[in-house]
Simulated scan of single mutants.
Amino acid sequence: MLMAHPAVLADLVQQYETLYALHAENGGPEAQQRLDDIVYTLCTATGTRDIDAALIAARHQLPGARAEDDSVLAPDA
């Protein structure tokens, strides 16, 4: 499987988080389309099918990620 460069993943995660914080999903068609494009690209780059899994996978590929990172566990685990 091809792996996206960590700088690309970091940029995609940052763009997603910014658009999500600005509630782009409730914005105009251009904002919604940009958010959809980022979600699609993140999923493609990480080999996942949903944004939650894509964000986890991307974060694990970024520099400084720890092998024992428990971000994949449920909050109450």
Rank of each mutant, 00 (worst) to 15 (best):
Y16A: 03
D50M: 04
R34K: 07
I56V: 14
Q33W: 03
V72H: 10
I56M: 14
I56D: 06
L22A: 13
V72D: 11
A4M: 15
A57F: 09
L12N: 08
R49P: 00
A7K: 15
R34Q: 13
A21K: 09
R34H: 03
Q32N: 03
L42A: 02
I56F: 04
P63S: 03
T48S: 07
C43G: 13
A77W: 10
D70G: 05
D69Y: 01
A58N: 08
G28F: 11
A58W: 12
G64P: 09
I56H: 13
P75G: 01
L19T: 00
A54L: 04
D52R: 03
D11C: 03
R59P: 07
L9V: 09
Y20A: 14
L62N: 08
L35D: 04
Q15G: 05
H5N: 12
T18Y: 08
T18I: 06
H5Q: 14
L22C: 10
S71F: 04
D50Y: 02
A58Y: 02
A77T: 02
P63W: 11
D69F: 01
V13I: 08
T48G: 08
C43V: 00
A67Q: 14
N26D: 02
Y20T: 14
D76T: 08
A67I: 10
L55V: 03
A57I: 07
D70Q: 07
P75N: 05
T41Y: 14
P63Y: 05
D37T: 14
I38W: 08
Q33P: 05
Y16H: 11
M1I: 15
D50N: 15
D70T: 10
A10L: 13
T41G: 10
P6A: 05
A24W: 12
T48R: 09
P29T: 11
Y20I: 15
L35M: 03
A7V: 13
D69Q: 09
R66K: 15
E25P: 00
D50R: 15
H60C: 07
E25R: 08
L62E: 10
T44F: 01
M1W: 08
D36W: 01
D70V: 05
D36S: 09
R34W: 04
L22T: 04
Q61I: 09
L2T: 15
V8L: 14
E25T: 04
L73N: 11
A45W: 00
Q15D: 06
E30H: 03
D76F: 04
G47P: 06
V39T: 00
D11H: 12
D70I: 01
Q32A: 04
Y20M: 11
G27Y: 02
G64V: 02
Q14G: 14
H5I: 13
R34N: 00
T46W: 03
P63E: 06
A53R: 05
A58D: 03
P75R: 06
